[in-house]
Design a protein around this nucleic acid. Sequence first.
DNA 1: ACGATATTTCAACAAAATTTGAAATGAGAT
DNA 2: ATCTCATTTCAAATTTTGTTGAAATATCGT
Lengths: 129, 129
Amino acid sequence: MLGKKESCCSNRGNRLPKIKEMEIPDSIRQELEQLGGFDALADRIPQREDLEEKSRIYHALSDPLRLTILHLLKDQPLCVCVIKKFVRIADSKLSYHLAILKERGLITGEYQGNWVIYSLTADGRSFVR
Amino acid sequence: MLGKKESCCSNRGNRLPKIKEMEIPDSIRQELEQLGGFDALADRIPQREDLEEKSRIYHALSDPLRLTILHLLKDQPLCVCVIKKFVRIADSKLSYHLAILKERGLITGEYQGNWVIYSLTADGRSFVR
DNA sequence: ACGATATTTCAACAAAATTTGAAATGAGAT
DNA sequence: ATCTCATTTCAAATTTTGTTGAAATATCGT
């Protein structure tokens, strides 16, 4: 969803204006100052890497077809051949979506005889409860 | 992420092949039959509307910048003017991302004087615990 | 009503994700 | 080795998302 080098989020090390010097609504200023001001607020933002990792997982989940696949795998592993009967799409398209789920660590797949069998990972499982 | 009319997921009403008639790996067949076969499997797939709704929420979360905004709002509402100091991007860009979070019901915003103040919704909050 | 500041909207553009169909690969059977 | 079936890979075309800068809107103070 986002390349490697773009600055998107983290903030640490950015010089923030002093809260005193900024014109902001009173209610906001007061609450913020009680909670430690801008510096404390900056500390509440997770590391950029963590945000990027999370956003990639959410991206994998951001498609109904991929959610369907996760639900199909909820109670047992399945070969592509069975998944295919439920999501009626081109093989290559199914493969593409399986690859995304796999790359994000939500499912794993391995050959078993002629077939490839996919299962949920623990991470994947956490989203189909 | 996905248009209205595409068939993407649900499956109900699709004629499925009989599990007996299909060639699938033995281990899979056995487990599946124990769990009620193809019909039961089909029933485990949520309604298409639910999947689409969920996928749109996940899509909103699939960007590090938007996740940053949610974290900024975790402990108190903020005006755009403060958010802007933390995510250093063009105003219109920030507005675009705020609009996505808002449209997906993760934040709400309202004018208070000259400023617009955003807060997490209950839904939004559930993702920044 | 007018001017100033904060924020949003819009349309054009750029970038990223998805779809498609053909070709390639993996694995067992012959 | 060759055939066949299941699945993946690839590159090109298409669609969706995100970015940009200019213009519009909201609200307040005068």
